[in-house]
Design a protein around this nucleic acid. Structure first.
Lengths: 229, 229
DNA sequence: CGGGTTCTTGACTATCTTCAACGAAAGTGG
DNA sequence: CCACTTTCGTTGAAGATAGTCAAGAACCCG
């Protein structure tokens, strides 16, 4: 997947496979930012000074409704870019889930090039990929069942940051069940039950709360598309 | 709301109120395109040659899952811009719901300026607004009830293209109930029943299938946020 | 008109949520 | 380092919301 925040979406688009590891040229590069888990990068409504490419760690982008309902918009993993402005301000909160290292870019680089045309192009492409990725996520939120959502989530995360263990795969879930629920439009209870169901069907194993072993990757992928279990 | 496709989202962002009616300067402008209802502007997977600003009419952007499930991504109303590319191809289908007149722009204008910096900036801003609007729509799809979704939909559409009739308002729904359902992540039956419920509670009146009168705009807005009816 | 599509309505069902309890894990202060 | 507290995760039972299936009504188009 490309240099844009992570959406849990099954896409077979092969052009996403090779994200540029380093954007633009090196002139007047801003220093990297290091942030501890639990800290906050920005809040909804803050004026945008910088965009950030995640180098290490995991971020969480959220939006809140007045009555407290919450939607996790995306998780930001390495190579992702977060902080696209709209009318000059942030439209999500952004918190750090896992100690992070971020490369900041000036907002002006996105908006008028700011003397680095290559970086300008890269940031724009990242924004366009973001739009496409969000469209995929619409399908997930609007049209998939709880099982399909959770299966999709595990598949995408495993593809991006999982490890191969022979025929099995393993993936770390640094976020809480509540975060996953708010990302998928479910409740924590439903996420928990769905994981249990996958475990009982021997599709996955739950090594510890934050570490999932994918016992049958192909079966899980099938479930994410709605194949009968 | 700004020059980006319509998402049904309640946002109080005041900066969205004044979309530029004409983007960029006039040099080498492409001729407007006229399309009949029922025709198709592009399909998912088509290479992107042009972006389009809707001048008149209504477009529908959709995405399909292999098994036929469908998600309407957005409806395109006048001032909206549709057709943002990702990796050079379209990621939705785009059909015409109401006879449309479109202003095309070269893809290169978005991607490298193409000799018109102002237009380049405007298109980029439209893309960034699109991201923000989609984030709002996530909240709708993931966290709102059927009643809240339908109420939100009516409110946003009325704000954008409704007419004032004294204390009442009126709005045209050129799309089918199925389109609304696929936009909101519901079934046609649920959309229909929810409209009936609003009618029975005297919040709206259904003049004809495609014309809704908002009898109590404030009450409807309340429902869209989850106030008790 | 007449036939096909779309919309509405009803009865029933399934899925997911809610509420509640319990257990496990993690954080805190002695 | 351990006991205490709190948060987080799992599970169960009950309930609500929205989906499914089916039929009839309204609308549209030739």
């Amino acid at each position: 997947m490309g240099p844009t925040s992570m959406y849990v979406t099954i896409t077979s688009d092969p052009t996403w496979a090779l994200p540029p590891q380093r954007l633009g040229s090196r002139k007047t590069k801003l220093p990297e930012t290091h942030l501890k888990a639990g800290s906050c990068l920005y809040f909804e409504g803050d004026p945008v000074e910088r965009l950030y490419q995640v180098k290490k760690g995991v971020l969480r982008l959220t939006r809140l409704l007045e009555d407290g309902r919450r939607q996790v918009i995306a998780f930001g993993y390495p190579t992702d870019i977060v902080g696209f402005p709209s009318d000059g301000v942030h439209h999500t909160d952004c918190d750090v889930l896992v100690d992070a290292c971020l490369q900041p870019y000036r907002r002006s680089t996105l908006e008028d090039g700011g003397g680095d045309p290559q970086l300008h192009r890269d940031l724009l492409q990242a924004a366009l990929r973001e739009i496409s990725a969000m469209q995929d996520h619409f399908m997930m939120l609007g049209r998939k069942s709880a099982l399909e959502k959770v299966a999709s989530f595990l598949c995408v995360l495993t593809d991006r940051v999982g490890q191969n263990l022979g025929e099995y795969k393993q993936v770390d879930l640094p976020m809480s069940r509540g975060d996953i629920a708010d990302f998928l439009g479910l409740t924590t209870e439903t996420v928990s039950r769905t994981l249990t169901q996958l475990r009982k069907n021997k599709i996955i194993a739950i090594d510890n709360i934050h570490t999932i072993i994918i016992l049958r990757p192909t079966a899980l992928l099938g479930l994410s598309f709605g194949d009968r279990d």
